[in-house]
């Protein structure tokens, strides 16, 4: 691919840093702040783009694992909808970003219903609670690594890089 994505991002960064920012009046603080954030987003996207589909596929895999763990714990009224959502998720094209996002949305919606338990009328089994916590820990850590470059994560120093996270998943 010519020009490739990395080259185009590099060109955009140079234009913003060396042409646009110097042209902005110093009093235009909001505009300057926003350009700096755009630069930050672009730098982050440069590290992320090649892994984006794989990352989303990993998110769906994590959620399917949670669904599988919940399957034996849930009230019978949820069993069929959970089985259906898991089946669709398993058959989702792992190279199709949009399909992966849709599967995450649909499976996640069923899991949400299970967690709420008809607004507390149905108990959430301790094993189900533990499975959700375990999933939450796995997924949050992946996402924290994915976005560590924002500098907002106070414990980012302990996180693996995106490349390390993705190689561990493969």
């Amino acid at each position: 691919m010519l020009p490739d994505i990395d080259l185009r991002i590099d060109n955009m960064l140079k234009a913003l840093e060396q042409v646009v920012i110097p042209a902005l009046p110093s009093g235009e603080r909001l505009a300057r702040d926003q350009v700096n954030l755009v630069i930050g987003h672009l730098r982050m996207m440069k590290d992320q783009w090649r892994f984006a589909v794989k990352f989303e596929a990993g998110s769906l895999e994590n959620m399917m694992r949670l669904g599988d763990e919940l399957a034996d714990q849930v009230d019978p009224i949820y069993r069929q909808s959970l089985a259906d959502a898991l089946s669709v998720a398993r058959n989702t094209d792992s190279d199709d970003q949009k399909a992966l996002a849709t599967a995450i949305h649909d499976l996640g919606s069923v899991i949400d219903r299970i967690i709420l338990g008809e607004d507390g009328r149905l108990a959430l089994a301790p094993a189900a609670f533990a499975a959700i916590i375990d999933y939450g820990h796995r997924q949050a850590r992946r996402e924290r690594s994915w976005f560590a470059a924002t500098g907002l994560d106070p414990d980012r120093a302990e996180l693996p890089t995106i490349a390390q996270t993705m190689s561990a998943a493969s």
Binding site: Q34, L37, G40, H41, A140, F147, L152
Partner: peptide, 20 residues
């Protein structure tokens, strides 16, 4: 300033991990 919202939104997992 949506560019700020998506920047801040990326910190969401920090709070999820804290809840865990």
């Amino acid at each position: 300033q949506e560019v700020v919202l998506t920047w801040l939104g990326s910190a969401g997992a920090v709070f999820l991990d804290h809840i865990v």
